[in-house]
Design a protein around this nucleic acid. Structure first.
Lengths: 98, 98
DNA sequence: TTCAATTATAGCACATGTGCTATAATTATT
DNA sequence: AATAATTATAGCACATGTGCTATAATTGAA
């Protein structure tokens, strides 16, 4: 029997057992906090207030605050927009350890 | 009157006018497609199938396929988990132009 | 100390990310 | 050509990201 067949069977059964009632999605607090620090640092270095960044990027002020306090899990598109608005490269924005 | 007061007023009124009925969230197709290509390239270079990556990362196979075809907007935590699982740095994962 | 500017928090409605299950399509191997 | 392996797609239920509005808290300037 091939490797992947067993992989599938094992995957299904173990996941089901772990998912009986409440399903929690991934929330990488450590990674999000590292990102938050980097984003805030770059925003300040580029001379934006949260309000200015919100206005120029089209992303709401409350959302920027949530991201910079690692309280939510932003999507990639949101990050791409912030990156373009502040004219910062993605490798620089993600230059931290997780 | 200070700058930010007008900023707030202008922000509120223009956003409301643009948001009369249906609200569309940001979906940066260009950025997501670039990311998808980079993710798939690195996954192949590291020798993972989608199935293997799903199993080791705990992220569903369908989600990995959706990400690699730029059909959805993944969250940062999802990306951080994939980065750790494949042992690839974030700057490398985001080494593309948007 | 007071006030202005900035950032953080709260809660609601809506859009959508995610897991699951199944199936279809494509690619690789025999 | 047939089969196996891999990837893509579909749809549903649930979790949560996002915009909006308002307010609270913190920080900076006067």
């Amino acid at each position: 029997m091939c490797y992947n067949y067993f992989l599938n069977i094992f995957n299904l059964s173990s996941m089901k057992m772990a998912r009986e009632k409440d399903r929690k999605l991934i929330f990488d607090k450590q990674g999000l906090e590292a990102f938050a620090i980097q984003l805030k640092k770059i925003r300040n270095n580029k001379g934006f207030t949260q309000n200015q960044l919100a206005f120029e990027s089209g992303i709401s002020i409350s959302q920027i605050a949530r991201i910079e306090t690692a309280r939510i899990n932003p999507t990639l598109s949101t990050i791409f927009v912030l990156s373009r608005t502040m004219d910062v490269s993605l490798p620089e924005l993600f230059n931290f350890q997780i």
